[in-house]
Nucleic acid binder design. Structure first.
Length: 309
DNA sequence: AACACGTGGTG
DNA sequence: TCACCAAGTGT
């Protein structure tokens, strides 16, 4: 399950831990000096605050999450508070964070926590993984950040840091590979407290210094041992990332439809929804998709609203 | 494995 | 301008 690493004996020469020397100390020290003061990192946030932040931060920048996070926690300070609400209230409070299915899943996770875990965010990785909207990354993040456990927390920031510092490439592969997971596990400090600090620190380094564009190596605590920089920062080879085109897609139509429903205080007639998009086939497909996803509730008489049941 | 899934900031 | 990017998950 866990890779055998040894902090008290001499590392095996082939152990990846030795690649580039020790990364943990410099990165953790840098984190202690430069970490952002984010609300979900304060002790008052608790496991629920950590979990809410992780849902919101899935593919959404910190700056846009901050205000919604504060309102969310003020309104629903415990999982049971959210579980009592209609799912549509979660979708409405989600606002314009994007990917509103996350709001639905966070609500579903709150219900499951209330039913199965007595209202407390579960502490074990498998229990977290079983909740809706929580995948490998989020389960590890909550277990590590909220409970101080030892898990490889492999998000896009950490993947980029490891790709550069250890592997020597500008970017990680498009999809997470077994080799990346193996490397992340091998680099995990043995000590639980150090491991959880390393997880947060390496992620923060990727977010603030070792960024996708315009990385600032002169501010990096491990620049001297970074394999990519030592190799002369070679440009990325291989297939470019698949562009996420948006204009004209179903996603854009769904976004427009949902925006109308979020702002409505009463059920909306189909005729009103029809105004958001000219093309009738795509418009109908988008609305059907929202209904089948549970984001929209159809009512008799051609009326629609956010799901209240 | 490849795609769908929102939204807004940035160079 | 527009392509890329931002603490992924589910199918």
């Amino acid at each position: 399950m866990t890779a055998p690493t040894h902090t008290t004996s001499a590392p095996t020469p082939t152990t990846p831990v030795t690649v580039g020397g020790d990364l943990h100390g410099p990165v953790i020290d840098w984190f202690d000096a430069h970490a952002r003061d984010l609300p979900w990192r304060r002790p008052e946030a608790g496991p629920w605050g950590v979990m809410v932040s992780e849902f919101m931060l899935q593919q959404t920048p910190v700056n846009r999450v901050l205000p919604v996070y504060e309102q969310w926690l003020a309104r629903w300070p415990r999982p049971a508070d959210l579980a009592k609400e209609a799912p549509g209230e979660a979708v409405r409070a989600w606002g314009r964070l994007g990917y509103p299915r996350r709001a639905l899943r966070l609500h579903g996770a709150a219900v499951a926590i209330t039913e199965r875990h007595g209202g407390d965010v579960p502490t074990e990785h498998p229990q977290l993984l079983a909740l809706p909207g929580i995948g490998e990354y989020t389960a590890a993040a909550v277990a590590s950040f909220a409970y101080g456990q030892r898990h490889a927390v492999l998000d896009t920031n950490v993947r980029r840091v490891l790709a550069r510092a250890v592997t020597g490439t500008q970017y990680p592969p498009n999809a997470t590979t077994a080799a990346e997971r193996r490397l992340a596990r091998a680099l995990l400090p043995e000590d639980e407290r150090t491991a959880s600090r390393w997880a947060a620190a390496s992620m923060e380094l990727g977010a603030l210094v070792c960024t996708a564009k315009n990385e600032t190596c002169h501010r990096c605590p491990i620049t001297a041992q970074c394999a990519w920089r030592l190799a002369g920062k070679p440009a990325h080879e291989g297939p470019a990332r698949r562009g996420q085109t948006y204009a004209g897609t179903d996603r854009q139509v769904r976004g427009k439809l949902l925006a109308v429903l979020r702002d409505a205080v009463a059920p909306v007639p189909q005729a009103v929804l029809d105004r958001v998009w000219d093309e009738p086939v795509q418009r109908a497909r988008a609305l059907d998709g929202l209904v089948s996803d549970g984001l929209v509730e159809p009512l008799p008489g051609g009326l629609y609203r956010l799901p209240m049941t």
